[in-house]
Design a protein around this nucleic acid. Sequence first.
RNA 1: AGGGGUAUAGUUCAGCUGGUAGAAUAACGGUCUCCAAAACCGCAGGUCGUGGGUUCAAAUCCUACUGCCCCUG
Length: 319
Amino acid sequence: MEKKPLIILTGPTSVGKTALSIALAKAVDGEIISADSMQVYKYMDIGTAKISQEQMGGIPHYLIDELEPDEDFNVVRFQQLSKHYMNQIYARNKIPILVGGTGFYIQAVLYDIDFTENETDTSYRSFLEQLVQEKGPLHLHSILAKADPESAETIHPNNSKRVIRALEYLKLSGGKISEHNEEQRQKDSPYQFCYFVLNKDRAMLYDTINKRVDIMLQDGLLNEVKNLAARGYTRDLVSMQGLGYKELLAYLNGEYTLEKAIDILKRGTRHFAKRQLTWFKREKDVIWVDKDQFPTETEVLGYILSKLDEHSIIHRNIE
RNA sequence: AGGGGUAUAGUUCAGCUGGUAGAAUAACGGUCUCCAAAACCGCAGGUCGUGGGUUCAAAUCCUACUGCCCCUG
């Protein structure tokens, strides 16, 4: 069976993925699936820099505004939903374009990572979470060290989140997560893909991040957060842990001044961008698109199209 | 102008009575296979404002200068 085409457009926050994605979708007659863990949520528009209806310019978008802020969202759901939408898109003879900055989500779809064994049984997980609270992270890690020494060695003792997952995996599947991960790592992508990572000079990126946060506040981010709080959404929700939301909720809770909250938000966003870049550096087969090397957006698009042509995802008509 | 204070890592500060400097934070780097805008880890920064002096030895004492802060006029 021939591999189906898939285009990925990603990069750190604020590089300008959204604007480019529309031009790209129009050029290749594609439809966009958002690979963003926060834009799925309704009522969270300003803080997530969500694309507006007008900006979409008629291009169909999926996984934007699909969930209420108190719903859970995670890689598994993302993977299921995007596969579902991709099939629809293929059925229409269009090309799916994954656009967004959540590298983990992209990886899950691109390599069709196996997450089965889920059970939706969260009782063991909560039991372990309780245990860390009581006995500390080292204790939990030592339990893992006995049951699955290989995994214990690769997971730092302080990283309880991962230790818990490893133990949970062990209990639910009977296997070692270290082996599972190794298997998944060997996988080839089932798609004929092009993985574009948009990037630009670090100092300039940080500068636009800082400015964008200021703009978000001018646009009424604080009101957005107040409205969410008024609807009863609290900080323990996954959605409210998004950048811009957790900081302003803390401010509204009187934990620090607005000025401090904004500084923390800017810093957090810069750190996030850095982590995103670290992720993409590690991914194989990515095509880095350094915006600084192109005088205009049109030429960035031109470069991307030429790559898509090289990878036989599109066939350009010369002239 | 006079009096007092201060000057140490990019930043905020520690460094007791002299033995060539530490922390937080930023920066930089990394991990990641069901909370990923999350969680976690690592590393590197200082001619101690400048010039003299005392001393075996000064960030630490003395002195002059320079910058900043406060008070008085």
